[in-house]
Computed example of a mutant assay.
Amino acid sequence: MTMNVTRTDIPDVLVIEPKVFGDDRGFFYESFNGPEFEALTGVKTNFVQDNHSRSARNVLRGLHYQVRHPQGKLVRVVMGEVFLYKTTDTWYPEHERSLLWRDSTLHIDWPLQGEPLLAAKDAGGKALREAEVFA
């Protein structure tokens, strides 16, 4: 196996860590292997889109989901605040919703120094108990 999978306290959220093979020349790892992903997670999916974002220091990008056309996400942290992720459906902005990033019921220990820089939709996110659910 070329990856380790760890379950979290949040249902359906897994931490997937690739096994890195390195020597004095550098390193190599598989960032994604479909059959192994399915075998280790039990999730059969067809990723349709890859996204990559880079954020300035102290930017917090929110917790987004869609109330129609649910979008499964596989997020890869490359370095620091840089993320690359795959999605199982395309983005439908009219169905996107945001959770309140600092909702205490989520138990997320954000590694922030001061107040984060937020998009308006993230600053106005809803607490989990108030969130609109999939239609």
Rank of each mutant, 00 (worst) to 15 (best):
E130K: 01
E94L: 11
H107Y: 11
D9G: 11
Q113Y: 03
F27Q: 05
D50H: 11
G26N: 01
E94A: 14
H107M: 13
V75I: 15
R97H: 05
V15C: 08
D89F: 11
G80R: 07
L106S: 12
S98H: 07
G125T: 00
L40W: 04
K19H: 03
K73N: 03
L99S: 12
A120P: 00
K19N: 07
A131P: 01
R25C: 03
L112A: 10
F134W: 07
P70H: 08
H95T: 10
Q113N: 05
P18T: 04
T6V: 09
F134A: 03
S104R: 15
F21Y: 10
Q49E: 13
E30R: 13
V133M: 04
E96Y: 01
L60P: 12
L14Y: 13
Y65C: 06
Q66Y: 12
T8A: 07
F37H: 07
L106V: 10
Y85N: 01
W91F: 15
H95R: 09
I108H: 08
H52D: 13
L106G: 11
F37S: 04
F47W: 14
V77R: 14
P18W: 06
K19I: 09
E81S: 14
A123K: 00
R97A: 06
R25W: 00
P111F: 12
G62M: 06
L117M: 09
R61D: 09
R61M: 10
A39E: 15
A119G: 00
S55E: 06
K44F: 05
D122Y: 02
Y92R: 15
L60F: 13
L106N: 10
F27G: 05
T87E: 00
N33T: 02
L99F: 12
W110F: 11
P18F: 04
D89E: 15
A120G: 00
L40Q: 09
G72N: 06
E115K: 08
N46F: 11
P93V: 09
P111W: 11
Q66H: 15
V13P: 02
T41G: 03
R68W: 03
F28Q: 03
D50T: 15
P35F: 02
G114M: 00
E115M: 05
V78G: 08
Q113F: 01
G62P: 05
D122A: 04
Y29E: 02
F21G: 06
V48K: 03
